[in-house]
Design a protein around this nucleic acid. Structure first.
Lengths: 219, 219
DNA sequence: ACCTGAACACCGTTCAAGT
DNA sequence: ACCTGAACACCGTTCAAGT
């Protein structure tokens, strides 16, 4: 079904793949806020408008950068127990995407784009069914896990970005004062070692507990 | 401690509160992508640069729009059972923020800004402790619930936005073809009624299950 | 102290024209 | 078919000056 390319008309000077590659490099090196159509055009050696002959708009270009990303991450060994497979696959999504903060931003656009990533929802849904869930329940469980992973990735990467910023000043440093101890006793007593508590957060522990609640009890 | 305002210098023409109010109205009516400093300045009857005398930058203005939001939402009746209190409070966060999609975007900036919202983490952490968790575990549980709620809100509001768009065309309509049935059997068989499965997703059911897994078993 | 004006260095995208 | 050039309608923010 792959038709020969017609040689009619003007020969193309820039390839779609080239555009996507440049975009992905900018995203990886400088993040999503650094990517602009004009910047990509310049680095690809063309006019901004030349890009629009290859992609519909900026959102499409962003989503195209996701293609092939999953294939570049080594697939993990999956255990035999289906419950453990859910955990390991979910953790793999988290650790895999941790290295690509820009991908989390792009995934927020809400459209599936990378076919090579689909084995992960497939695996989780299949394992949930193997654990005794109906097909519908399994889809819901996957969705719940994805919402959690997305949120965790968002705040983890955002915090890492802010930590890397040399001249960051908190916007509201003293939202909580000792005077709030009456109304908010736990938050005030915990606010001192909030940073340490954040470090102690273990995504694997949380995922395991979540999965325990979401899946039917083991037989 | 509230010092009298010095009347020295030029009298102010625009009040900070006025700026924040206009910004919040734009956010509520047209969403976060419609808010610009220049737009706010115009509607407030001033130069773009006048705003910078009252706020540090656009991010600070965005975060200021959150102040007082929680107080505008009626506080729910909380049940006596601490486990149920966690659920009801978490659900309240979800339903409360569902009406303010822009607030979800602003919360993604990652800084706490609305003091009136702090009773919710306080309540969840206190209830988790009442259920037998340590202070540290309770903070982790809250964080896990928040990550999930944030992800759920993100995708729910994004989907609602796209559904409201009159001329939306999916970017990648046929990512999954019948030929993928070998590799991705569940996804291909489920893709037909994916919309219906999405409608059947019940956040209360998922939260209850999550909480069951996260909290120690009831005595 | 508070605000203006001009400027800098950008954006995404449409449209008409060229090869 | 593919690309350019010019234009439209915007951005956030700095800086020097005015009252």
């Amino acid at each position: 079904m792959t038709a020969e390319k017609r040689a009619a008309g003007r020969p193309r000077r820039i390839e779609k793949q080239q555009i996507v590659d440049v975009a992905r490099r900018i995203l990886q090196e400088e993040g999503v806020q650094a990517l602009s159509m004009r910047r990509v055009a310049k680095e690809v050696g063309a006019t901004p408008m030349a890009l629009y002959h290859h992609v519909r708009d900026k959102d499409e270009l962003l989503m195209l950068t996701l293609a092939g990303l999953a294939a570049s991450i080594p697939r993990p060994e999956l255990p035999a127990d289906p419950r453990e497979r859910v955990l390991v696959t979910a953790l793999h999504i988290f650790t895999g995407l941790s290295g690509f903060p820009w991908a989390v931003d792009v995934l927020g656009l809400g459209e599936l784009t990378d076919k090579g990533a689909l084995w992960m929802p497939e695996e989780i849904i299949a394992s949930c069914i193997a654990c005794g869930q109906t097909h519908e329940e399994a889809v819901h469980t996957y969705r719940t896990l994805w919402y959690f992973l997305y949120g965790a990735l968002r705040f983890t990467t955002a915090e890492a970005r802010r930590a890397a910023d040399p001249d960051r000043r908190p916007f509201f440093p003293n939202l909580l004062t000792p005077a709030d101890a009456d109304e908010l006793p736990h938050l005030t007593s915990l606010s001192a070692d909030w940073q340490e508590l954040t470090r102690g957060y273990d995504i694997a522990v949380q995922l395991r507990a979540m999965i325990d609640g979401l899946l039917p009890p083991a037989t």
